[in-house]
Computed example of a mutant assay.
Amino acid sequence: MTNPPVSRPSPTFIDIAINLTDPVFRGTYHSKKKHEDDLLAVLDRASQAGVEGMIITGTSLSESQEALNLAKELGPGFYCTVGCHPTRSTEFEGGPDAYLAALDQLIAENLQGKGRVVAVGECGLDYDRLHFASAEIQQKYFRVQLSLSKKYNLPLFLHSRACHTDFVKILREEGFGAGGGGVVHSFTGSLQEMTELMDMGFHIGVNGCSLKTNENLNVAKAIRLDRLMLETDAPWCSMTGGHASKHQLASLPPLHRELYFPPSTKPENFTLGKTVKGRNEPCAVGGVAWIVSQLHDVPLQVVAEVAFKNTMDLFHLDAISTIQ
Rank of each mutant, 00 (worst) to 15 (best):
R172F: 04
L217F: 00
H164Y: 09
Y127M: 09
A250G: 02
A304L: 00
H203W: 10
G177P: 05
Q105Y: 11
K114N: 14
S64V: 00
I291W: 00
V306M: 11
C283D: 04
L146H: 03
P4G: 05
L61D: 02
P299Q: 01
F270P: 04
L211Y: 01
S147G: 15
K150C: 08
S321R: 14
W236D: 13
S186P: 06
G121N: 07
E258Y: 13
N269E: 13
C123N: 09
L111A: 03
L103T: 05
E268T: 14
L20A: 04
M54N: 06
D37Q: 06
E93W: 10
L255H: 12
F308I: 09
P23M: 07
F157N: 09
Q324F: 13
T322A: 15
D38R: 11
A178Q: 15
Y29W: 13
Q105R: 15
N269D: 15
E36N: 12
Q324Y: 14
V144D: 01
V183P: 07
L70W: 03
Q139W: 11
M198G: 00
V302Y: 10
P11T: 03
T12W: 03
V183T: 02
F25N: 01
S62F: 12
S264E: 15
P235G: 03
S47C: 08
G177W: 09
L295N: 01
H256C: 14
G179V: 09
T87F: 09
G208M: 00
G242F: 02
C237A: 12
T2G: 04
T240F: 08
L39N: 08
A102E: 06
T165Q: 14
G241E: 14
Q48W: 11
M312E: 11
I55C: 10
K32H: 12
P263I: 10
A71K: 05
H35S: 08
D37T: 06
S147V: 13
V118P: 13
S147T: 15
S190L: 01
D128C: 04
N216Y: 01
S62E: 15
D97Y: 08
Q65Y: 10
N153L: 12
Q139H: 13
G201W: 01
G94Y: 02
Q324V: 12
K140S: 05
V120G: 02
G27Q: 05
S190R: 02
G181D: 02
P263K: 13
H159C: 03
L171H: 11
K212E: 02
S321I: 13
K34I: 13
D128P: 08
S31C: 09
